[in-house]
């Protein structure tokens, strides 16, 4: 669904922005967990993702963000969609698909791509942990 004329925020973006239930840090204890952070090169927007895995599934997914409403909404959507799934489902996240679902304008692509960067860092961390 698109936003009203001149309104840069779709109803979906507003809904996720206004209810960031997954903002914060991991609350539970997990056998496997990881935290990763990515930010814009100019020191602007910054995303942190934290995941807790239990029985091969994402039991908890949390974010911290300094950034615009679209990025906050995208992170909240990502976390709420990912919990209960496998990490490989999370790693298949594509900024373009998320932007389409949330009606995020194209000029915010760079921001939403930060989520992809953060997931890639999480993947590396989990791979390194597994190698140990």
């Amino acid at each position: 669904m698109t936003s009203a004329v001149g309104d840069p925020y779709s109803p979906q973006t507003r809904r996720y922005f206004e209810n960031p239930a997954h903002a914060g840090d991991l609350a539970g204890d997990y056998t496997t967990s990881a935290v990763a952070q990515a930010s814009e090169s100019d020191g602007g927007a910054c995303v942190q993702l934290a995941i807790g895995l239990r029985d091969g599934k994402l039991a908890e997914c949390r974010f911290r963000i300094f950034g615009c409403p679209h990025l906050i909404a995208a992170a909240e959507w990502l976390c709420s969609e990912s919990e209960g799934r496998t990490f490989s489902a999370l790693s298949r996240f594509q900024a373009g698909e998320c932007m389409k679902i949330l009606g995020i304008p194209v000029d915010k692509t760079g921001r939403v791509l930060l989520l992809e960067d953060t997931i890639r860092l999480l993947t590396d961390k989990l791979a390194r942990a597994a190698a140990h």
Partner: peptide
């Protein structure tokens, strides 16, 4: 502010 990363910037 509560939602922001404790330390901003960088990639880790």
């Amino acid at each position: 502010r509560a939602m922001a990363p404790i330390v901003r910037g960088g990639s880790a």
